[in-house]
Design a binder for these strands. Structure first.
Length: 222
DNA sequence: ATCCCGAGGG
DNA sequence: CCCTCTGGAT
């Protein structure tokens, strides 16, 4: 009988691996440094398929013109488009922003809500964005799962070669959360994302430089 | 060419 | 489950 790894053993192994990963990756700080929940929410929505540096380059003008939900809800779409154009997806993002601001103003009196269910009712806000806001603006434990996290965890847990594991992000979220105390979730997610960008690339992962090379079932250098 | 710390819609 | 949205950096 091929001794299948027990559930508990699996969790312990995962914990050890991620701990090693955390050791190897410098402590992350949220690059979208907005203390204001509204600004963090907007900046996080804007950050899809762009870099933080570019988001940071447009937010001064954006928040200068529209400091809160009510102002943004009343904004002229074309003006908003002009401001965020360099980010790409500017049409859908503008739609999201105006819809988001409208809903925020109408349903939550302009105050960013603090629960997953409420946040995800907002246009343009999915589970990943909601978890980023919860963790970084409110200190509410959450584990943001993006494509990097899917790829890195997929490669670590089973051989997934070059593809993103065809797995449910919510399942990944739950499994990771089961392995770590809540106060580590936000930080660990961020580290996995950074690791996915810096080392565990989609196309050409730098396995030789990976601290998990010894145990990763998808390693290309063993 | 390829990628960027996604979400909504078909 | 797939597709699309989009400009800029590398």
């Amino acid at each position: 009988m091929p001794a299948r790894e027990s559930h508990r053993a699996k969790l312990e192994r995962m914990h050890a691996e991620y701990a090693l990963l955390c050791e190897a990756i410098p402590a992350p700080r949220c690059a979208l440094h907005f203390s204001n929940p509204f600004e963090l929410l907007v900046a996080t929505v804007l950050s899809a398929q762009t870099t933080d540096r570019r988001v940071n380059s447009v937010t001064p003008a954006l928040f200068g013109a529209y400091p809160d939900a009510a102002a943004l809800a009343a904004a002229d779409p074309e003006t908003v488009e002009d401001i965020i154009r360099p980010l790409g997806f500017f049409r859908s993002k503008t739609q999201h922003l105006l819809g988001l601001a409208t809903a925020l103003d109408r349903d939550f009196a302009g105050v960013v809500p603090r629960t997953m269910d409420e946040l995800t009712t907002l246009p343009g806000v999915g589970r990943k964005t909601a978890n980023v806001v919860l963790g970084n603006a409110f200190g509410v434990p959450g584990f943001p799962v993006d494509t990097h996290v899917m790829r890195v965890t997929g490669r670590l847990r089973w051989r997934s070669d070059w593809r993103i594991a065809k797995s449910d992000p919510v399942k990944v979220e739950r499994e990771i959360c089961a392995c770590f105390p809540p106060e580590e979730w936000t930080d660990l997610s961020h580290r996995l994302i950074l690791h996915g960008r810096a080392v565990c690339h989609a196309r050409k992962p730098d396995c030789a430089a990976c601290p998990l090379n010894e145990t990763c079932p998808s390693s290309l250098t063993r």
